[in-house]
Design a protein around this nucleic acid. Structure first.
Length: 291
DNA sequence: AGCTCTTCCTGAAAGC
DNA sequence: TGCTTTCAGGAAGAGC
């Protein structure tokens, strides 16, 4: 499933060849996951791709409407969330169309940008430039940009479980189930521990673990565990480095204990019960000698 | 504030 | 063998 490293890989691939191209035609299949399909067909043809970037798990395509009619607000942003099974690839029109392909964006150089999404958990919508800051404001901080002090403030003050906080896109933007679990393992923190119960040392370890995990995953072009492929249709390799994710019942690479799975924040959470100690239940003072 | 449950969707895997 | 059921999960919304 595409999380920050996968989306970053897709974005880098698209950035290598799309900027400068003009969108000449838009065709859509099923549109129940598209916020306003008519607006795509109306507004995209004729725009030029000025840049491709990533906002959390969103691919952000910067488009410029050229011509005198658009002097006031010429810039629009096409936001694409890949959901669970979304794929964004550049193809030639003659290439076979993969099943569940629901978006075709024809380019003036003859190629086609295609959106494929088996489960249609993705989202596609347009944001005018004037509304982009508001959209960005609803998302949390970029995990690779945030400083340690702000990281501590955002996570260390919260009484929710750390796993829930890592998955909450309004806290940090871009982490999903894989990288949350992998980062917690590397920081030796149990997923059910409360943010406010983390020690300064643990917060530091987590901050570093997230950065290191994401950086390595980007270097290996993401994790391909089900449908993920990059913009050229290639799979990533970070799934080979997973230490806990989907490794229930297997030995911990660090200590040999058996990896376990629990549900935290409604999500499967894989962890090593030896390396990531279970938070202690709150104790009453009954342990003190009664006399 | 934060938790659980539900909804969306499909295909893989488990169950019978 | 083949059909049916269950499950996974990102995000949003409801209800507690």
């Amino acid at each position: 499933m595409p999380e920050l490293p996968e989306v970053e890989t897709v974005v880098r691939g698209l950035r290598a060849s799309l900027p400068g191209c003009r969108i000449v035609d838009v065709r859509l299949g099923k549109t129940d996951f598209i916020e306003n399909p008519v607006s795509l067909v109306e507004h995209l043809p004729g725009t030029r791709i000025a840049g491709i970037s990533r906002l959390g798990k969103f691919v952000c395509v910067e488009l410029i409407r050229e011509g005198p009619a658009f002097n006031s607000d010429p810039r629009i942003f096409l936001l694409i969330h890949l959901g669970m099974t979304g794929q964004l690839t550049t193809r030639n029109p003659a290439d076979a169309v993969a099943p569940h392909t629901h978006g075709f964006f024809s380019l003036d150089d003859g190629r086609e940008l295609r959106y494929t999404d088996i489960r249609r958990f993705g989202r596609i919508f347009l944001v005018p430039e004037s509304l982009l800051p508001a959209f960005r404001g609803r998302l949390g901080a970029e995990p690779l940009d945030i400083g340690e002090a702000e990281f501590n403030a955002r996570l260390g003050s919260r009484r929710a479980r750390i796993k829930a906080l890592l998955l909450d896109q309004s806290v940090l933007r871009g982490l999903g189930n894989i990288y949350a679990d992998e980062s917690l393992f590397r920081a030796r923190i149990h997923p059910a521990r409360l943010g406010s119960r983390l020690t300064p040392r643990q917060l530091r370890a987590l901050y570093r673990a997230i950065r290191q995990t994401l950086a390595t995953a980007i270097r290996l072009r993401g994790s391909s565990i089900s449908d993920y492929v990059d913009s050229n249709g290639n799979r990533g390799e970070f799934q080979l480095r997973h230490r806990v994710y989907q490794r229930e019942g297997k030995p911990c690479v660090r200590c040999g204990a058996t990896i376990r799975r629990v549900v935290v924040a409604g999500r499967s959470s894989f962890f090593c019960p030896h390396c990531q100690t279970v938070p202690r239940k709150r104790r009453t003072r009954s342990l003190a000698p009664t006399k």
